[in-house]
Amino acid sequence: MGFKLLSKLLVYLTASIMAIASPLAFSVDSSGEYPTVSEIPVGEVRLYQIADGVWSHIATQSFDGAVYPSNGLIVRDGDELLLIDTAWGAKNTAALLAEIEKQIGLPVTRAVSTHFHDDRVGGVDVLRAAGVATYASPSTRRLAEVEGNEIPTHSLEGLSSSGDAVRFGPVELFYPGAAHSTDNLIVYVPSASVLYGGCAIYELSRTSAGNVADADLAEWPTSIERIQQHYPEAQFVIPGHGLPGGLDLLKHTTNVVKAHTNRSVVE
């Protein structure tokens, strides 16, 4: 069995187990497998329904001669939608809004960016022009300005110390501490036991640490421990890039980060 097929099978099995364990909360999309990078042309966006009122959005972007996937989250909030992270750029984010209108038909009224990198804030200006209120932590807003990236308009308070959590509509926002970046936030959907790890969490097929220019490698494993301790009931975990899975993604990420750190020390 090929690795790609095995990865998709694991996603399907995880979703099936969740649907059985929580039949009222989960209505997993039966329309197909989780979209992969090879299936999404740059400039297009796919939506994948995880649970009743919960979707991931998947886009792709060219970077350094390669094409990478990027995940975000959409959560229903009454007759409105909360968006977590842009679709990595203005063109993708405009396509995301169009796809949401086509498939869901509810307005996106608020959006949260989970850290300051372009795959999370690139497209904020498109959201703002569409009347979406954009939010991020003060740290993310400051770092985005320093980096020359787009800056969300509103500040999220109460997320300055490791372990801080605040309720934001249908989700809980959690600051686990520094990891992929010093400002990275985690998003949890309690009604569906869905954990969105953003770039602080890796997919299972990833074996290298990737972009760690703004990471705190020493603190990252401790931050992941905080996530595990705060959300032990999480059933569906979405990484910032690639295929979702279960809580095993947290341990896998820790292993990859520690291996990278150990290699760096040896070198």
Rank of each mutant, 00 (worst) to 15 (best):
M1R: 04
M1I: 03
G2Q: 08
G2R: 06
G2M: 15
K4P: 05
S7Y: 04
K8I: 06
K8R: 09
L9K: 06
L10A: 06
L10R: 11
Y12P: 02
Y12A: 09
L13V: 09
A15N: 05
I17A: 04
I17E: 04
S22L: 09
L24I: 13
A25V: 09
A25P: 13
F26I: 06
D29G: 08
S30F: 06
Y34H: 09
P35E: 12
P35Y: 07
V37Q: 13
E39C: 09
I40N: 10
I40S: 12
P41E: 12
P41V: 06
G43W: 09
E44I: 06
E44V: 13
R46A: 05
R46F: 15
L47M: 08
L47W: 02
Y48H: 11
Q49D: 11
I50E: 04
A51T: 04
A51P: 01
W55N: 00
S56Y: 05
H57M: 01
I58F: 05
A59P: 02
T60L: 07
D64W: 06
G65V: 06
A66E: 08
P69D: 05
N71C: 03
N71R: 02
N71Q: 08
G72P: 01
G72R: 00
L73T: 03
I74E: 02
I74K: 01
V75T: 11
D79K: 14
L81I: 14
L82N: 09
I84G: 01
D85W: 00
A87I: 00
W88A: 01
G89Y: 04
G89W: 02
G89M: 03
G89H: 04
A90C: 09
N92G: 13
T93I: 01
T93R: 00
A98F: 14
E99R: 14
K102Q: 14
K102E: 10
G105S: 10
P107R: 15
V108H: 00
S113L: 12
S113D: 03
S113C: 06
T114I: 00
H115D: 00
F116N: 06
F116Y: 15
H117W: 00
H117N: 00
D118K: 11
D119G: 01
V121N: 01
V124S: 09
V124C: 07
D125R: 10
A129H: 08
A130K: 13
A130N: 07
A130I: 14
A130T: 05
G131R: 11
G131M: 12
T134S: 11
S137T: 06
P138M: 15
R141F: 08
R142C: 10
A144E: 03
A144N: 06
E145V: 11
V146D: 12
G148M: 05
N149R: 08
N149I: 11
N149F: 11
E150F: 05
E150L: 04
P152A: 14
T153D: 05
H154T: 07
H154R: 11
H154A: 09
H154G: 10
L156E: 02
G158A: 15
L159V: 13
S160C: 15
S160G: 14
S160N: 14
S161H: 05
S162L: 14
G163M: 15
V166K: 13
F168E: 02
G169N: 04
P170M: 04
E172R: 15
L173D: 00
P176V: 02
P176I: 04
A179H: 02
H180E: 00
S181T: 09
T182I: 10
D183P: 00
D183K: 00
N184E: 01
N184G: 13
L185E: 01
I186V: 08
I186H: 03
Y188Q: 02
V189K: 00
P190N: 04
P190E: 09
S191R: 08
A192H: 10
A192M: 08
S193P: 02
S193F: 09
V194H: 01
L195I: 15
G197H: 01
G197L: 11
C199H: 01
L204Q: 07
S205A: 12
S205W: 10
S205F: 14
R206Q: 05
V212K: 09
V212S: 11
A213H: 13
D214Q: 10
D216V: 10
L217C: 06
A218P: 09
E219D: 11
S223M: 03
R226N: 15
R226Q: 04
R226G: 10
I227K: 02
Q228V: 07
Q229L: 14
Q229R: 10
Y231T: 04
P232Y: 12
E233L: 09
A234P: 04
A234K: 03
Q235F: 15
Q235T: 08
F236K: 14
I238T: 03
I238Q: 06
G240A: 03
H241Y: 02
L243E: 08
P244S: 12
G245N: 10
G246R: 07
G246S: 09
G246D: 14
L247P: 05
L247Y: 12
D248S: 12
L249A: 02
L249S: 02
K251S: 05
K251E: 06
H252E: 13
T253K: 00
T253E: 00
K258G: 08
K258T: 10
R263T: 04
S264V: 14
V265P: 06
V266K: 14
E267W: 10
